[in-house]
């Protein structure tokens, strides 16, 4: 089977490392370069696969959230702006920048992964290359198989609710329960037979499927990009601290 010249699991490692950088990074300097690189690349690649509109909406929600959070939790330091009902202090700007940079880093790198691969190949690669337990891989593969089915369940449940004169969905806990029960009821029966179907086809004898592919140029490129960014992040912070 001819596929792109890299393993989806390399992308997974890349994305996971970038997310760790976001956790480690405690300064704007540290996060700046990886965030810009991943943000630009991720949103560029992602807009083709996922659609620009959705990504812009996603960005607005997050920037808005970061701003609200910054005002609530980090409104300290010198006052920069006095709006009368609220004072905006320097802490807000710093926190807003930090959270936004992390957002671009994490979401950008995840978008790179999702754009250059797909869920099915990713799950297969996690099982054969990263050797995650085959039971977890089976669950994930089945979840991915279920997705359109459960979307259809949700649609049918919404139709029935509308016909019965009920609101489709609110945050009201009782509504949530009456939505969950039919969804799980249909899901339970399906899972029961799917489980039987998997067991009579040898799930419990499943050995980890070993991939016989070696690292390719594509994989090496991914790891090179990864290392370069980690190094840059640490070096930038170091340089700025020294001078």
């Amino acid at each position: 089977m001819a596929r792109a010249g890299f393993k989806p699991s390399s992308l997974f490692i890349y994305s996971l490392t970038m997310a760790s950088l976001a956790f480690i990074g405690r300064s704007v300097e540290f996060l700046l370069i990886p965030a810009v690189v991943n943000g630009v690349l991720g949103f560029g690649l992602g807009s083709r696969k996922i659609g620009l509109k959705l990504l812009v909406a996603l960005m607005i929600i997050n920037v808005w959230g970061a701003l609200i959070n910054a005002v609530y939790f980090s409104n300290v330091g010198t006052t920069l702006l006095d709006l009368g009902f609220i004072k905006i202090n320097s802490g807000v700007v710093k926190a807003f920048l930090m959270v936004s940079l992390r957002f671009f880093l994490v979401v950008g790198s995840t978008l790179i992964m999702l754009s250059l691969s797909n869920a099915r190949d990713l799950i297969k690669s996690l099982e054969s290359d990263l050797r995650i337990p085959s039971s977890v891989a089976f669950s994930l593969a089945y979840a991915f198989r279920l997705f359109p089915l459960m979307a259809r369940d949700f649609k049918e449940i919404s139709i029935a609710r509308e016909e019965r004169g009920l609101k489709t969905f609110t945050l009201n806990p009782k509504h949530l329960k009456t939505l969950l029960t039919p969804l799980l009821s249909v899901g339970y029966e399906r899972a029961l037979w799917a489980g039987i179907s998997s067991e009579v086809r040898g799930l419990s004898s499943r050995r980890k499927v070993r991939s016989n592919r070696n690292l390719s140029v594509g994989d090496l490129l991914i790891f090179a990009a990864l290392s370069a960014q980690v190094l840059t992040a640490f070096l930038t912070e170091l340089t700025l601290r020294l001078f």
Binding site: G65, S139, M150, L184, G187, R190, G195, S197
Partner: peptide, 23 residues
Amino acid sequence: TGIDLALLAVTAVVSGVIFTANW
């Protein structure tokens, strides 16, 4: 068993969608 793993997949889809919407 396979049944347990399939059930986990069901709850993973349900909660995955809830998690996404919850943002």
